[in-house]
Amino acid sequence: MIPLSHSLAIAALLFVLGLAVVLLRRELLFILIGLEVMLNGVALTATAAGQYWGNADGQVLVIMLMTVTAAEVAVALILVWLAFDHYRAARVEALTQLREETERRTS
């Protein structure tokens, strides 16, 4: 039988890979995909734990996760699209209007 720790390790790997995608890729779409991967890791963790403990709470958590993710992704994607529309780019480097302006500071 699969020990829980193995599932957890795989889930953690997924989480970490998603994290790496978020951190490494500079395209907003990739970043959103990376977030999905991270959440998949979470989902795997919850499912495996649900199996381990033998109750349905884990699955409820995953379902909630999916729902919420759907909502989030919808809004986020619209925003990415808007960004692409406005800035003609969907890369994070293009989205740096808001920043600390230490060099140009006067006084």
């Binding site: 978020v22 951190l23 994070v92 989205l95 808001l98 920043r99 600390e100 302006e101 230490t102």
Partner: peptide, 18 residues
Amino acid sequence: AYTLLGTTQNGVLSRYAL
């Protein structure tokens, strides 16, 4: 110190996530 910290705040989203 302000300048130093301020430069990390460069507006790039990935940096924040990092």
